[in-house]
Nucleic acid binder design. Structure first.
Lengths: 327, 327
DNA sequence: TCACAAATTGGAACCGGTTCCGGATACGTG
DNA sequence: CACGTATCCGGAACCGGTTCCAATTTGTGA
């Protein structure tokens, strides 16, 4: 059985208030300190943080809700958040939702019950239910990757990134282009990024872009690409993520075709694995580390009641690979 | 300010014990139930779980300590653990350590303070300090990926996997082989897997294998490979992980050489991205999902005080890709 | 209608800490 | 040596729940 502060006090021959004071750096004489220290060492005593938090209102835990763990972007952001929070003496608790919206809600409640000081929600879309729940638990919540009016947000500049990609593809001389996107329920990737691409292309006079929808995983992307190529013959395919681009690449090479000779290909993400794949992928890398660091700093400010900028936008840079041919 | 059970009781005109009983399904009359329900709905009341856990000894939270989040293996295992724990009505709290051993210790203590019911430690090596800490916090701990006598463990069969790979490489006719491993402080990968490979090769009479050490990341693996190839000219390189193999592949192609024509290459992992890379990688896939599910089930048994098998070994299967040439 | 059991409820103690308050002791000063 | 002050320490109340126990109310059968 675990020792309590009362046991320690009894063993040291002092009152439990004295032990508590010792633990929290109050006024305790050297001789009593020594006695208490001895007992604590001998018993491996660890204070019960539930009891502590009952009175102290701060736990120094920050919860992070992530849609998945097996994506390059998410894990990079998570690692950066964790690193930065640790520097500020916070502990990060991560919960994964496997992309189930109801689990996001559930996790918000779970974390609030664990009395975390703040929650970073890496989201794929905010619903009314999210809104209600966040209101109900009165804990600061920072939304990452999606833009919502009601909350503080950190987002990628998906529209501009898409725009840049659209423009680039146009300057490379492509006119017959397919866009392989994702569901519109993901506002950032499904809507903004796509709109950016379309507008970037439109600016160059290309308006008849065919768009398709794929899941986020390689396997599905590969299948969708197969269907797409059965009915249309674009010179270039722009994919909403690098993973989707890899899926497309798989299908293309299965069909005995080559990138970029038969089809040009581009993605979004900038995973480091791209360096190994031939041809290297033309893509856009978002500053995921920066997003993570920013998120950590912002949530801390929020827990301290400071005003923070409502909307923060992370940058990106364009990576020109070998997967797009100039026509 | 958040409401407490006392406020609810006052507003409903009953004793707080009655509210508690209502919340936990005790004997409460319909009329009282209705009154309390009404008040709770109006106030958005959420019980303080710290106070709850103070008395109730179970929190239904399981902590998982992972060395990193940006590896295919770790995230796959994590997702599987999470999925299985959720089925059993547990919530998973994940803490990443970024491969710092001291953070593993720190995280064990942090999680014990959060009063999780059990901890799954995905480790890269257990030190004396681990041992002491795990003893001190009296919470069930299950070690995954490393074998330690003192604790319950779930491991991959690294030795057999290595052995299989060694044998295979020998049957393909390779005699001049380099092994690109990792630090021996990682017992499973650094020692057992390597020993398996060496023994597998030795069985075929190949004993003069040169071994080198790389970090786990692509970049470093690429650099080490460069140095290796400056001084030796093997026909095959066996890498301790797929990521290392990708790093080697990068260097090889930078040198204007080809896999498998100039060098045969093999790894361990079986990441799904391998399907996209040409040539596809010959590798060994561990049953990560199975490991995760097993880990979840085992830790639950442990929290319930059941006896569990001291050592559980997960299987693997061999994947023959195009990266090894028959000589 | 009465005795007795079952259902319902309130009060108090408890979980393991923190903190306020007041008394005891030690110390420095005139 | 007496006095004021700073330091140290113990006792008690409190945080927000759960649970035990006893009292009250309700319901049942004879």
């Amino acid at each position: 059985m675990n020792k309590t502060i009362k046991d320690i006090a009894k063993l040291a021959g002092v009152a439990k208030s004295t032990v508590s004071r010792y633990l929290n750096g109050g006024n305790v004489s050297e001789t009593t300190k020594a006695k208490i220290r001895k007992v604590i060492e001998e018993t491996n005593y660890e204070p019960n943080s539930f009891a502590q938090s009952l009175k102290a209102k701060k736990t120094n835990f920050i919860g992070v809700i992530a849609p998945t763990l097996d994506s390059y972007v998410t894990s990079t952001v998570l690692m950066a958040i964790d690193e930065e929070l640790r520097k500020r003496e916070y502990t990060t608790l991560i919960i994964s939702t496997s992309k189930h919206v109801d689990r996001e809600i559930e996790s918000l409640i779970n974390l609030s019950r664990q009395k975390v000081d703040g929650i970073i929600l890496i989201s794929t879309g905010i619903t009314d239910k999210h809104y209600e729940t966040i209101q109900a638990i009165s804990i600061p919540v920072l939304v990452v990757a999606q833009e919502v009016d009601a909350f503080n947000c950190i987002i990628n500049d998906d529209y501009q990134a898409g725009f840049a990609m659209g423009q680039y593809m146009a300057t490379q001389g492509h006119r017959s282009i397919v866009y392989l996107g994702v569901t519109e329920s993901d506002v950032a990737v499904g809507q903004k990024r796509k709109q950016g691409v379309l507008d970037g292309l439109a600016q160059a006079g290309i308006t008849d872009v065919q768009t398709y929808v794929s899941q986020f995983d390689l396997h599905n992307a590969s299948e969708v690409t197969k269907k797409v190529l059965e009915t249309s013959a674009p010179t270039a395919i722009i994919c909403a993520t690098d993973t989707i681009a890899f899926g497309a690449m798989k299908t293309i090479s299965k069909l005995g075709k080559k990138v970029p000779d038969d089809y040009s290909l581009a993605g979004f993400g900038g995973y480091n694995i791209s360096e190994v794949i031939h041809p290297t992928l033309t893509t856009i890398r978002f500053k995921n580390e920066q997003t993570g660091i920013q998120a950590a700093r912002t949530i801390i400010s929020m827990t301290e009641g400071e005003e923070v900028q409502k909307l923060q936008v992370s940058g990106f840079h364009f990576i020109e690979g070998e997967s797009v041919k100039k026509i």
